[in-house]
Design a protein around this nucleic acid. Structure first.
Lengths: 227, 227
DNA sequence: CGCAATTTTGATGCTGTTCAAACCAGGTGG
DNA sequence: CCACCTGGTTTGAACAGCATCAAAATTGCG
């Protein structure tokens, strides 16, 4: 299987391109550059002038570094997700980092071709608009959570969400606890303490590594909503 | 001048509709419902199923209430800005408030017509995508600022931004200090103290009401970037 | 002029950070 | 196969920033 076929197969699995006609999918597939990234390899960083990336395989974190050195994890991107569009649409360079958390494969569509695609296929623009709008909702939710809710509340909410995504009460974190702490806007130390508290209360059970189990989800829901 | 003409005049001033052909502008103008809002009047709230709003005159705040009662100001919308698109694109109800901070005029385009417009005029989708993408950037910036920077740093940054927007060192806040505190993710008390500190240091001068003057912007820049 | 809301100031307490050190896990090379 | 090393996790102690509560002062508005 050569690069083109591989790309075409890939393009078919991307929600963003779902509505495109066959011939356009071929065009996109041949225009796209696919690359593998190792664990911890940087995909782009502040100042880079990249195109649109789409995750094919693996897990990518989008984060920002404050002057103080604090890292804020903004989002995790999984297969099918796109990233890098903010700088592209504003015609500037990026102001954040994208790093592969595991061996990953991404493809990139250069700026020119992407803009052309956007202008010629409104469906892509609309789909992208829906996605970005959803991300905005999440980000603004995060803002109000950071000011209006405690770490314990945010953690409880996140644990419920993770269990929900996994579809079961026992699951494994997609990342290290350090990254989870960053996502929740706190430190590893504080997160560790809150988790310990929950375990002592019999609400969760911490397994080895990043695995855990929710023993009392109802209790978590109470905590999450400020009980 | 009847409602239609008024609407048409309005439509011409909206950046979002800038690229539309004349005939479409007429259609939009006749489809739009214009309304006046008093100071503190609610435009929409959580659970409402609204269309797309566009600010014509005045100032609108978009905010969220935490269970604890904490209010988080998310953004201020001025003439030309649109709002309500998140719920619309996700086909759900809103999860936040929009309130007129002054006597304001807004128009609303209902869901159906908006969706049709979006599908038929890709330029609108692309423009909207750019705007929403920019807002996402701001929101994510806010997230990392809330976790990585102190109130003093966020305040310094905001003061510089306000002076920049005003184009001069002495300006008047667009809102009350209470709202500014909410925007910065802090309390009125803390904001008042930080402003007092800056004044004592000779960095700013607080005038009556919401007016102030930046005496030493360089110093603010130092504070803002963590000096 | 006087009321209501905002702003300021003060005193106190708590949540979460910081620094430090011990502990643990996974992966590498001898 | 095991010692080792690096980064993640946990725990402890002390501290700092900011919120909270309370009350006085100021502002703007009817």
């Amino acid at each position: 299987m050569d690069g083109h076929d591989h790309g075409l197969h890939f393009v078919r699995t991307v929600p963003l391109f779902a509505g495109l006609p066959e011939t356009t999918k071929h065009h996109v597939a041949s225009a796209v550059v696919t690359r593998q990234y190792q664990r911890d390899e940087r995909i782009y960083g502040p100042g880079d002038r990249t195109g649109l990336f789409i995750v094919h395989e693996g897990l990518v974190k989008v984060h920002r570094l404050a002057a103080s050195g604090t890292e804020q994890l903004l989002r995790l991107m999984s297969p099918g997700d796109f990233l890098g569009e903010t700088a592209l649409l504003a015609d500037t360079t990026t102001d954040h980092f994208a790093v592969a958390l595991r061996p990953s494969e991404l493809c990139m569509l250069d700026r020119e071709r992407f803009k052309r695609l956007l202008g010629q296929h409104p469906g892509v623009a609309v789909h992208m608009l829906q996605t970005v709008s959803g991300r905005l909702g999440l980000a603004e939710h995060m803002v109000s959570d950071l000011t209006g809710r405690s770490v314990a509340q945010r953690l409880a909410q996140q644990l419920l969400l993770l269990a929900d995504e996994a579809g079961r009460a026992d699951f494994t974190l997609p990342t290290t606890k350090k990254e989870l702490a960053s996502y929740l806007g706190t430190t590893p130390e504080t997160l560790s303490r809150r988790l310990a508290t929950l375990q002592e209360a019999g609400v969760i059970r911490l397994g080895s590594g990043q695995s855990m189990e929710l023993l009392d989800p109802a209790s978590l829901r109470t905590v999450s909503s400020g009980g």
